[in-house]
């Protein structure tokens, strides 16, 4: 939790997307979203909500950082995050009821997502609003990148479609659909392979 000195924006972007990507660095925050990664559309909506909530919460935490007493900062952060999550939930309920029903309780679970808390604690609490916003935004995007990739693999192998559109080969009779991919174990396997892949690439990068 060392207070970072002013970092150039470019570094914040690279950190969030790749170098410090929350998922394969620490395997954090997958809980709330992994369950909906069997359909690409649900994942995209869920990840967009999460990214926006992360960015705006970080900015709000940062705006309030001079007034917030240290001993209650966790509670204030939780409150701020919950506030934005409820707003997202209400917007979905009012303007996209089908999606709201599909995601069920998972929208609410964004509150306990460790990534948002982590970014608020580690960065937003000691930095000005604008960099905090960028930091939150790109941490969220880095996270979304991996989950959307997982969902593409799962939907394609499990149902032969992407975003509901039938894919050539995979939706024909030639491809025996792997139903297990849409079921929970598929999520574990895909995520494990994804982490394996990313870590191996990183190792190569470090060597060269």
């Amino acid at each position: 939790m060392s207070p970072q000195p002013a970092k150039p924006m470019k570094d914040l972007v690279a950190d969030g997307l790749w170098r410090d990507n929350p998922i394969f660095r620490q395997v954090l925050g997958i809980c709330s979203t992994l369950a909906v990664t069997n359909v690409v559309l649900n994942t995209v909506v869920m990840c967009t909500s999460l990214t926006l909530v992360t960015a705006i919460s970080c900015m709000t935490v940062s705006l309030l950082r001079h007034w917030t007493p240290r001993n209650i900062r966790m509670m204030v952060q939780t409150l701020i995050i919950a506030f934005y999550v409820i707003i997202v939930d209400l917007i979905l309920k009012a303007y996209w009821p089908e999606m709201s029903r599909n995601l069920g309780p998972y929208v609410g679970l964004i509150i306990t997502n460790c990534i948002i808390m982590g970014r608020c604690e580690a960065f937003a609490g000691s930095n000005p609003p604008a960099p905090s916003f960028v930091d939150g935004l790109f941490s969220g995007l880095g996270y979304s990148l991996i989950l959307v990739a997982i969902s593409v693999v799962r939907e394609l192998l499990g149902m032969g479609t992407i975003l509901g559109f039938a894919m050539p080969y995979f939706s024909s009779d030639l491809w025996d659909k792997w139903v297990i991919m849409v079921m929970p174990p598929g999520a574990f396997f895909t995520l494990a392979c994804m982490i394996w892949l990313c870590r191996s690439i990183k190792k190569k990068e470090a060597k060269s």
Partner: peptide
């Protein structure tokens, strides 16, 4: 008109 089954499976 109302269901919250598992997305991609029961849904």
């Amino acid at each position: 008109y109302e269901q919250s089954e598992t997305p991609g499976l029961g849904a």
